[in-house]
Design a protein around this nucleic acid. Structure first.
Lengths: 218, 218
DNA sequence: CGTCGGATGGACTCCAAGGTCCCGTTCTCG
DNA sequence: CGAGAACGGGACCTTGGAGTCCATCCGACG
């Protein structure tokens, strides 16, 4: 799934190809299990079993569970940013935002709103428990918002958005709507609230278009 | 703090005043600890110590930890709805919404965005782990949104909001912005994202005012 | 083709946290 | 005021999960 090494391994003297593969297998298993069950509710034995490894390998690659979790934060952050970069780096029009919205809604509707955003779900669990994880998550959110705000900047520079639009604030609002939408969708096991939330944020951005009637929301 | 019995005790044959007090002390301790550390990271011994009770009392009032958590979900739900009812049941103008926004921001800024919303923080941790808790949380969110949408309905009926405004969708969007704002504020340990998110949602509602320039956002 | 260090399997230890139990105290009601 | 039930303290049991250790395997390189 992720043959491209997406999160840099911690500096170690030598590491073989096989070692990297095992490490990735562990991270991938932790990724899936912790998304579904939550970080604290996932045991190392669960991960060991799902990744077809053993205790010694877990502790060979990670100092302890906390380090594994921190590595997972980086891993997920890299995955999300990689995915989002693909969808946002060419953003130049409002309809591009709508397509981005649709992709997220589509993905989340596949499991009826369950599980939510990989980053958001860790945030509430870790932010008051592991300062290092919290700040990493915060930076990832900032980078994600920057991908959005960069796109909005391009739209403003090309004359699509009015000059008084504030790309940073619009991006923050959109991110909040996305995360809140994930949360409500997760609570309701239904994507609808996420759609409503994203549509609100898009409408708000649309109100800053020079030609507000450029195209409908969907 | 909560002498008024805010969450009905489970039906039991006899229960004394002292018993209720103990039960409430346990819930109150669980409320605080689990808000700060998260549900799974809080142990019964922590709660026992903080509430000045003993193991037998915990198990006298609650069948097991899961039941305690479920009781806490109801307890928090009742507290939030009680607080929100006070702030929203008289909502009749846009400036009322602004005051509501300011109160939430003010409260959250007291601890630099930490901890987040009592309901939201439980949601991501419990929704994929305890179906009963999930549906209770979902219903609480729905009731909360209804408090908002009722106010918006009153504003629409009195001619403040345009007829094409959809109070339910606006309320959902506002709730998503609030929860997403809490989450980002928690990640950043800074209220600013929450303010931006709420302002976006309020701007969106304002765009449905008959007199959009009625008053500024703050 | 031998050896050395990383990679691996899996048994083992230890402890914390959930849950049980027993016995004494206090309340309530007839 | 006596019986029975609710209330309370705290020792104890049990389990599961984090973390350790060591023997073995593999593979790269001289």
């Amino acid at each position: 799934m992720s043959d491209e090494q997406v999160a840099a391994p911690t500096n170690r003297r030598r590491i073989s190809q096989r070692g990297i593969a095992t490490r990735d297998r562990i991270l991938e298993a932790a990724n899936l299990l912790m998304l579904v069950r939550g970080v604290n509710a996932t045991t190392l034995d669960d991960i060991r079993e799902a990744s077809q490894t053993s205790k010694s390998q877990l502790y060979h690659h990670f100092a302890d569970k906390q380090e594994l979790v921190r590595a997972l934060v980086r891993y997920r952050g890299a995955l999300v940013l990689q995915r989002e970069r693909a969808g946002l780096e060419r953003l130049r029009s409002f309809s591009g935002l709508v397509r981005w919205r649709n992709a997220l809604v589509q993905a989340n509707s596949l499991n009826n709103g369950k599980y939510g955003c990989g980053l958001g779900s860790m945030t509430l669990e870790l932010s008051d428990q592991d300062e290092q994880a919290r700040s990493a998550l915060s930076e990832t959110f900032a980078a994600w918002e920057r991908l959005i705000s960069d796109g909005l900047h391009r739209m403003r520079d090309s004359g699509l958005l009015r000059q008084d639009a504030d790309p940073e604030k619009l991006a923050t609002g959109l991110m909040a709507a996305l995360q809140g939408g994930y949360l409500l969708a997760n609570a309701a096991h239904n994507v609808a609230p996420m759609e409503v939330a994203l549509d609100m944020a898009l409408e708000h951005i649309r109100s800053f278009l020079v030609q507000p009637s450029e195209e409908p929301t969907r």
